[in-house]
Design a protein around this nucleic acid. Structure first.
Lengths: 123, 123, 123, 123
DNA sequence: GTGGTCTAGACCACT
DNA sequence: GTGGTCTAGACCACG
């Protein structure tokens, strides 16, 4: 359960945290019932204000990914894996859609984009 | 020269406007010497705050895509086509890079993304 | 003497426990002199932190509903039935008051609420 | 559009604010397209921290009741009236359900509760 | 002017 | 110990 945030990113920090938890659950690194690090611990680890972590947790709770275990912390919900896989799929599909829109309006063909994908793929 | 803005987009309006001008120039819909609509006209047409249009034009002027023609308005510069084609390429490459990053961290393979591209491609 | 707690309830667990004891006494299911389950037993039975049960018992002792019997545990007091019936009446009145406030501010009439009551009444 | 908060209430202030906006929309005091008071104005008016108001607005935006009009403020959405009437109905039904549960377990009859309702009804 | 994000530090209820 | 709420004050992007 390692989380990294980039404070120079255009995406807000709390969203980065929430997003990485979603991906961790979707990838099986976090299973239902697992307790995620406490607000204070995570805040120290990321050198970020506790309120910022709290806000990330609120978003995750709203999504139904985590739920409070009173006095213990936040635990991954039973439904979380399904929810997170769906959300991950959505996010990727949205990004693909934007890419396609930009590429198509520039006169590119699918094959051109395939090539770009391969060029940018991490080795 | 038709521009459309989506006020519900996460991208700021001034960036949408500037981006569409860049794409229009890169695609040849706007040629060097062409006058683009005045701030006031465009603001009315898009039902947008004139300041917003102004800011888009500032960005375009900074990029060297348009330049003031005293008493006439803003005109597309001689260098604009080359600049805009480069910028268009950058923008697409950035989007591709984001897509690849998201897809790779979700465990997808290049072929999977190729398929997504084809699925989302406008028919 | 069966107690059930909902950990997802907005009401704290210790209050749920105390409340159910009060209702059990008010309803005659627990009579003066009856011993209530020990903190440890109840904690195991409800899969709840013993401290939480302790706090519920403190509240009940403060209300005069239970009292310690050295070496035996906590016993229902002689005054408990009267106290609990009063408290039960208070609790119900509080809930009615909240309901009335919400309904009235929504423009409902007493007759509308009567109908809602009948609809929700357990058959 | 008058909002009042009780800082001594068990309900958090941001929820009180959000709830009153919901009721105002449900009651027709706020119509789609109306701009609600700015964060700063409302904070001053309620002598509350701006962040608290912000949080109420976030909740309302999440519910789809208000949406940002960039540079102008937050506006009531077209769907808001329907959403707010539904939410109001839910809230009342939940309260009624709790009341009925408490009353039934105390051995009361529907008629008894009807009488309590009438007693507590504001004159 | 608007809302959005973040920090710092406090207090509270619950377990 | 845990999360939840609130205040105070700062900076930023956007219109």
């Amino acid at each position: 359960m390692t989380i990294r945030v980039r404070s120079d990113s255009p995406d807000p920090i709390y969203e980065q945290i929430a997003g990485q938890v979603v991906f961790a659950v979707a990838g099986g690194d976090l299973a239902p019932g697992d307790l995620i690090p406490s607000v204070r611990d995570l805040a120290v680890q990321l050198t970020v204000n506790p309120n910022t972590v709290t806000r990330a947790f609120q978003e995750l709770e709203r999504l139904g990914v985590i739920e409070p275990r009173r006095g213990l912390g936040m635990a991954v919900t039973p439904d979380a894996p399904k929810l997170c896989r769906n959300r991950r799929k959505e996010l990727i599909r949205d990004r693909v859609r934007e890419t396609v829109r930009a590429a198509a309006s520039a006169g590119l063909q699918p094959a051109d984009v395939h090539k770009l994908i391969d060029d940018e793929w991490p080795k």
